[in-house]
Amino acid sequence: MTFLPDMESGRDSFFGKLRRIEWGLVFVMAMISVVGTILLFGAAGGSWEPWAGDHIIRVCIVTCLMLVVATVDVRIWYHLAYPAYFGVFILLVAVELFGKVALGAQRWLEVGPIRLQPSEFMKIALILALARYYQDAESDRMWTIRAHVIPLVMLAAPAALITLQPDLGTAIMVAGVGATMVILAGLSWWYVIAAGTSVVAFALAAFFFFMAEFQKNRILTFLDPSRDPLGSGYHITQSKIAIGSGGIFGVGYMQGTQSQLDFLPERHTDFVFAMLLEEFGMVGGLFVLSLYLAAMAFGIYISIGCRHIFGKFLAAGVTMLLFIYVGINAGMIMGLMPVVGEPLPFLSYGGSVMLSLMFGFGLVQNAKVYRDKTLGSGFKSSKRVR
Score class of each variant (00 low, 15 high):
residue 266 E to H: 14
residue 335 G to N: 07
residue 108 W to I: 07
residue 53 G to Q: 02
residue 258 Q to I: 14
residue 37 T to Y: 08
residue 61 I to L: 12
residue 168 L to W: 13
residue 180 T to R: 01
residue 318 V to H: 02
residue 261 L to H: 08
residue 202 F to G: 02
residue 236 I to R: 00
residue 111 V to T: 05
residue 240 K to Q: 14
residue 131 A to W: 06
residue 72 V to W: 08
residue 201 A to I: 15
residue 19 R to V: 13
residue 160 A to H: 13
residue 86 F to Q: 02
residue 329 N to Q: 11
residue 292 Y to C: 01
residue 345 P to T: 04
residue 342 E to T: 13
residue 355 L to P: 03
residue 32 I to R: 06
residue 341 G to N: 09
residue 59 V to I: 14
residue 40 L to P: 04
residue 45 G to Q: 05
residue 361 F to G: 00
residue 11 R to S: 01
residue 217 N to E: 14
residue 162 I to K: 08
residue 127 I to H: 02
residue 112 G to N: 00
residue 161 L to F: 15
residue 99 G to K: 10
residue 139 S to M: 12
residue 370 Y to V: 01
residue 157 A to P: 12
residue 169 G to L: 08
residue 130 L to M: 05
residue 198 S to H: 12
residue 241 I to D: 05
residue 306 C to N: 08
residue 295 A to D: 07
residue 266 E to P: 10
residue 240 K to V: 11
residue 215 Q to L: 04
residue 17 K to C: 08
residue 334 M to D: 03
residue 22 E to P: 05
residue 200 V to Y: 08
residue 158 P to R: 12
residue 168 L to A: 01
residue 156 A to S: 13
residue 33 S to G: 07
residue 26 V to R: 05
residue 72 V to I: 14
residue 282 M to R: 09
residue 34 V to H: 09
residue 229 P to G: 00
residue 126 L to D: 02
residue 252 G to H: 10
residue 141 R to E: 11
residue 56 I to V: 15
residue 254 M to W: 07
residue 329 N to W: 14
residue 269 T to R: 10
residue 75 R to Y: 09
residue 177 V to E: 02
residue 149 V to M: 10
residue 103 L to H: 12
residue 130 L to G: 00
residue 253 Y to N: 03
residue 190 W to E: 06
residue 318 V to F: 06
residue 233 G to I: 07
residue 342 E to W: 11
residue 156 A to M: 15
residue 188 S to Q: 13
residue 264 L to T: 11
residue 187 L to S: 02
residue 60 C to W: 15
residue 110 E to M: 07
residue 347 L to Y: 12
residue 375 L to K: 00
residue 257 T to F: 11
residue 369 V to C: 02
